[in-house]
Design a protein around this nucleic acid. Structure first.
Lengths: 241, 241
DNA sequence: CCAATAGTGTCTTTGAGACACTATACG
DNA sequence: CGTATAGTGTCTCAAAGACACTATTGG
């Protein structure tokens, strides 16, 4: 029933797009998937988040999944809508309103995705700063050189990290950045990276266990020197927000 | 620089609209501004949230302000973007993606707005339920008769209330539903209504004062029988999220 | 002085951080 | 058996709920 007979008067309207911040955390560093731009000189910024125009017969979630699939080759990932950005000059090529999403994947999945296509690259979040249009993430490339993103994509990344910080301790977002089985030390490192400060070990462990977020598997990690840690898994995939 | 030369290839795209849930709380009851629909039989639901198509030269915030102004005659209100809804069949007349906002105003302002235009009405949130497409607010009209909203507007209201519950205790959203000066009992009633359960008086007072949310004015409410309560005002308008 | 609400003091419980301790696997 | 990390027990402190109390105003 959608899409064919359109009884609404049509006006000239902004174009509608989706932008995706695909994140992972590796060794205490936040990484974002970006793609090289061909017309970087015109837009400003040599890289941008992957994205796409929204087609007439797609929901926004379908658009995001198409981007995830076509750009990064991913079928399953934790995806959440972030916010819709509509500044008049956010795209110098024309009027585009963009619904931003973020996706979280474990490092292994991220690495696979970043290799999937030519032009894909990894940006590293150096720190969260502020510029004239609000919060902005300062990014580096893999060699440590500053990287400028096109459009308002630095704002999108900064907003994503704010959202993650807020959701971290009452939802399971942290688990999305880890494999199915993980040690509590790994989980704690994820939390510390997102929050930007250290946590105390006993408190963190008790909280995770007492709240019913994780369950011990009885198995232990392998290939480590010294005492191996027990592997845990998350309990409820349900009830986000 | 926007809006004129458009270098993007244009495709057929969904229409882009904004919907606004204007809320207040009166005597422990959540009220929402709705407008009567002329083609309710076709769309289903006799009332809908006020909204508008987004014009090519407007940010979404400007669209919301235009709606606030033209429909409710309001210039200043606390407004926050909620989420963007894009289900294919959310509008049976055609493909429309809608960015939902909510606005909070004190009861006095709300009453003025509801009288501003013919066709405006007040819906009362009876309770939060769930239907096939997720959470949904059950609404009544002023006479207690069930009221069905068009489109996914019942979902928008339910999502707004979830958001409010989440933000209530670490932001100042509660204050937006009260006049500049208010008693702590009034503030507590706002919180209780949003949360859906009662709070203990000493804890609530200490929390509000200790966190630096409110400041006593030295003045007291008037025209009350029995002991009048002291009037407070909020401290920081800054730092939302 | 009575009714009814405003406002506070104290106790308890809970949860988180600090700190120091014990446990275990590898070499 | 030493080393480095895994994992825990205890203390303290802060915040929130329960409960009971005092304070104040209009009639």
């Amino acid at each position: 029933m959608p899409a064919s007979p359109n009884e609404l008067k049509r006006h000239v309207q902004p174009a509608l797009a989706v932008d995706l911040a695909l994140l992972t955390i590796v060794d205490g560093v936040i990484e974002v998937l970006v793609q090289k731009r061909s017309d970087g000189d015109k837009v400003g910024g040599t890289h941008a988040l992957p994205g796409s125009i929204v087609r007439i017969d797609e929901t926004l979630e379908q658009t995001v999944n198409r981007v995830l699939q076509s750009k990064a080759g991913l079928h399953d990932a934790f995806v959440e809508q972030l916010r819709t950005f509509s500044a008049l000059d956010r795209d110098p090529r024309g009027r585009v309103v963009s619904v931003a999403y973020f996706a979280l994947v474990p490092p292994e999945t991220f690495k696979k995705a970043a290799r999937k296509q030519h032009g894909l690259d990894t940006a590293v979040v150096q720190r969260l700063g502020t510029n004239e249009e609000g919060p902005a993430a300062q990014l580096r490339d893999r060699n440590g050189h500053p990287m400028q993103l096109a459009f308002d994509h630095s704002l999108i990344i900064a907003t994503t990290l704010q959202r993650l910080r807020g959701k971290l301790d009452y939802t399971g977002v942290g688990f999305e950045l880890l494999p199915h089985r993980f040690t509590l030390r790994e989980l704690q490192e994820i939390h510390e990276t997102i929050l930007g400060h250290t946590l105390t070990k006993p408190a963190f462990r008790k909280k995770m266990i007492d709240r019913g977020f994780v369950r011990p598997t009885g198995k232990r990690e392998k290939g480590k020197a010294f005492r191996p840690a027990e592997l845990y898994e998350r309990i409820n995939k349900e009830s986000e927000s």
